[in-house]
């Protein structure tokens, strides 16, 4: 069984033995290396700016709605779990969770399981983005812009009465929107890609235990995006 798996994921012509990883997966690993560098640039700049900031850093607990984002974080972690479930269903054939009707064949159960878990991942991912959009709208309404605090807004009053530091609100807005915005952009790309795979491949039954490249590759990306969020949530919202 494992041999068959390796087979289809190799080029159809003879090659020197490279890494025993098929091209799409290797390509995704390489791509993720570049993504790590991209987020390192953003996060590194944030750390440098925050440590070098003139005076106290804006208080995330006052500016941001942490409980809502905590729920959102939990959702994103859940979506990683559903992603793993989708992968396990197709790669390892663990379909026994679903028994639609007595006597359903394993292949039917696997097929349904894959569709279910993938759709769940897409929906949770989309929910995450929606909540983030809501969070942005709310923040803009309260007066936090990428350039700082809007005149005459609720946050501007908090700055005026000294609850929030005036000197660093601009930097806070800049780095908050840039980092979470690019993360949100990555989640959106992931959701779109998964939806594309769902409609063009999953629904048409193109995935099997012999070939689940798309699921595994998008899964890698999805876990990466999830991991980045955990870091961002910690350093932007909590600390």
């Amino acid at each position: 069984m494992t041999h068959a798996t390796v087979d289809v994921m190799r080029p159809p012509y003879p090659t020197e033995r490279g890494l025993d990883v098929y091209n799409t997966k290797l390509g995704m690993w390489v791509f993720l290396a570049s993504e790590v560098m991209f987020f390192t640039a953003l996060i590194g700049s944030y750390i440098i700016l925050r440590f070098g900031a003139p005076g106290e850093w804006a208080r995330p607990g006052i500016v941001l709605n942490i409980p809502v984002t905590a729920i959102n974080t939990f959702l994103l972690i859940c979506s990683s779990v559903t992603m793993v479930k989708a992968y396990a269903t197709v790669a390892d054939g663990e379909g026994h969770f679903f028994r639609l009707r007595p006597g359903a064949r394993l292949s039917e159960r696997l097929d349904f399981g894959l569709k279910f878990w993938m759709l769940a991942t897409i929906i949770i991912g989309a929910t995450f983005v929606s909540i983030q959009v809501y969070e942005y709208l709310h923040l803009v309404h309260r007066g936090l812009l990428p350039s700082g605090v809007r005149e005459g807004s609720e946050l501007a009053e908090l700055v005026a009465n000294g609850t929030l530091p005036a000197a660093t609100m601009g930097l806070f807005g800049s780095s908050f929107y840039t980092m979470t915005g690019f993360h949100g952009f990555h989640v959106t790309c992931g959701v779109i890609s998964m939806a594309y795979l769902y409609f063009t491949k999953t629904l048409r039954g193109k995935y099997s235990q012999q070939d689940y490249r798309g699921i595994e590759t998008i899964g890698l990306y999805w876990h990466f995006v999830d991991l980045v969020w955990i870091i961002l949530f910690t350093i932007v919202y909590l600390i």
Partner: peptide, 12 residues
């Protein structure tokens, strides 16, 4: 967007 990453007067 008027962010302040490289803008020294605003802490960049």
């Amino acid at each position: 967007l008027g962010t302040h990453f490289f803008d020294p007067p605003a802490g960049g």
